[in-house]
Design a protein around this nucleic acid. Structure first.
Lengths: 216, 216, 216, 216
DNA sequence: TATGAATGAGGTTTCATTCAT
DNA sequence: TATGAATGAAACCTCATTCAT
């Protein structure tokens, strides 16, 4: 179908191919996905993939790059719209969770696939993921690290919070898939409630947080 | 090396092969890992892998099973040794983080690889992972859901907490690898501190946690 | 030789591959024949065999189908050209023997290989062979079962005659191979002579055919 | 089971192995049959097969030899018991058909498997099969080639008759398998009837056998 | 530009065969 | 004698990649 040439400009075709690749990589994993499959999903012939993207490896890298861009942009949007400022962290996290849940395919490629493949992607992928982490770190910092706070939350701590958020989002969207009667919003509510429970418990003395450094 | 036959009993060789497989699967991912690679890492010839484990797929399943057993056992040990009881959650989490950090390879196979591969493993893997999640859920419940607490933490909430813990542990051990001057213990300290900061902030009014259902 | 790509249309290459496969299967048997061997005999690389024919099993099935078609067509031609009609059986058998002798490779694949292999081919092969047997049965019936004949030759009997003809053709072409100074025609003459001898013997009383049912 | 050594004399074990091999080769074909399978069917361990028979190839040859011996002996018995002499051919054929039908496994190995495999067995197998053909030739000659007959039936003609008998027996036992309501005896009756029909037809002029050499 | 045709390289799997006990 | 343990070699099959039209 659409049997012969469609004569589209190169940039458009490239995006079509990357779109298809993200879908296929997400579904099958990097190695199981065949270039044939991707080409067919994109509606082009296999040599086109090579002419435009060069190789399977570079195609995957292109996917990583584009999805990292989009993820960064989504977090930035959350930051910008996160007014009033005192709600920054919560609403920012809500946006972020929603983004991950709504872009499962892209996220899978960006975080799960990219991490589980061997060496060839370490360089490009590490950089791309760092950009996302940095942006989320900024989101966290903007929401918490107000200068007047008692304890200082250092840069490393902010990054740790960012990682926790990412890991939690990752794990929780799996949970969403397994519990179709929940939504991203109801999930966020649950998470926030849990945090509140923790805080209240602390206040009532039910939870005694150990002083740092008491590890056995 | 060990150039010719070594003539060990079957059970021993099987464990050697599974050990090697966990290492290799962890490093390269399921598809990239070749059975040749695994056989060489185990110090046996390729047919041994097939004689003892049957197929690459069943070898992977065997890895999943064994590592799930070990993970469950580690969490149980944390539960048992979690005295005094009021420290249950903190020390339990500390043990769990330590376990994941100390068994990076196994964890990668159990959680990252198992999740990203397509259909063939769904059945066995889902069951194995559920066992781990259940055990961690019990750890979380034991540490938090004291009946006298204010808000009730339901079963779903406990599972969410377990997932968050798992996702966080997963993400944070990546962070550990990138920050070699930190240890599992210092990481746990940081996490706890962050929790304390959150709590204090809440007390001082710096953080206004929204009531559930306020999502935009 | 023909060292690099030759770029022929698919249909042509497919026939080349099947031609080669019939030769190689005939010589080495289904299991001994390697796809490499067949590819080389066809002058293509191994992947072509798989791209066009799918698998060794389906390649074999394709051979069966094509040769069954040809065999049926050969028998039909013998039936059509079998004038004058009263010579139908003899000249038809002559044509059939000649066909088997002249297409030894195809016949081997169709009858010997197909019969000795296990389950995977039962379905397709049984159907293909039935077509050939049916056609020969028709040839036999046309030549013998004239309605005015004394004894009626039933359907089962006709099929038995067909099987005998097939088995005899099969065995006799082996004999041809071992006696290169004979030809298909001289073989047919011998067979006819033997039949005449039998008839004459019967007339002279040298052979006493037992009444049916006298078996010990 | 019978878990450890049974300490049987070598000759007995050898026959056990050959028995099993005939069964397995018959069922699966030479190449599909694995030495493991045969060893298990024989109730011995794989190395025993090699100690006693040397190699898979020599094991197959041993099967051929033994079954050829048995087939020759069966035909000889038919010849000896074939009194009164004038019934020699018919009753001999009946015995022979019965033997083939009753020893399907052995016959398959001896005739179908042996013929369809590639080169390695040509030498040994050809000799073995010749012995069987010779014996059947003698049976045919004893039944037909009485010196006073009009036309001389030469040695080649007798061999052709033997081959026809073999091929027909081969094809007809397949037919027996597909028509379970028939027996070897009823099959022989049918064949004899068909021969009689041919003879009668000739007498009535319905069949005009062409003079030898009239082939188109 | 766009693609059907073609392949080198490498993966999983099996098997006949031998060694060491 | 008898066998569990071990392997070299080779089979089927797939895939990323390129060539010629």
């Amino acid at each position: 179908m659409a049997s012969k040439q469609q004569r589209l400009p190169r940039a458009v075709r490239e995006q079509q191919v990357i779109d298809a690749a993200v879908r296929v990589f997400s579904r099958s994993g990097y190695h199981s996905a065949s270039v044939d499959e991707i080409a067919e999903a994109a509606g082009v012939s296999k040599p086109m993939v090579y002419i435009y993207l060069g190789s399977k490896e570079r195609l995957f890298t292109a996917c990583i790059h584009r999805e990292a861009d989009r993820a960064v942009e989504a977090v930035r949007a959350a930051l910008r719209s996160g007014e009033p400022p005192e709600l920054g962290l919560w609403s920012g996290l809500r946006e972020f969770f929603g983004y991950v849940a709504a872009n499962r395919d892209a996220w899978r490629v960006l975080y799960q696939q990219a991490r589980t493949q061997g060496e060839p992607f370490s360089q490009e992928v590490h950089a791309a993921r760092c950009r996302v982490v940095d942006e989320i770190t900024r989101l966290v910092v903007a929401g918490t690290a107000l200068p007047e706070g008692g304890r200082i939350v250092g840069e490393r701590d902010a990054e740790i919070l960012a990682r926790i958020a990412i890991g939690a989002a990752d794990a929780l969207t799996d949970w969403l898939l397994e519990n179709p009667d929940e939504t991203a919003d109801s999930l966020v509510d649950r998470v926030l409630n849990l945090a509140l429970v923790g805080v209240e418990r602390y206040q009532t003395g039910d939870i005694a947080a150990p002083a740092p450094g008491t590890a056995p």
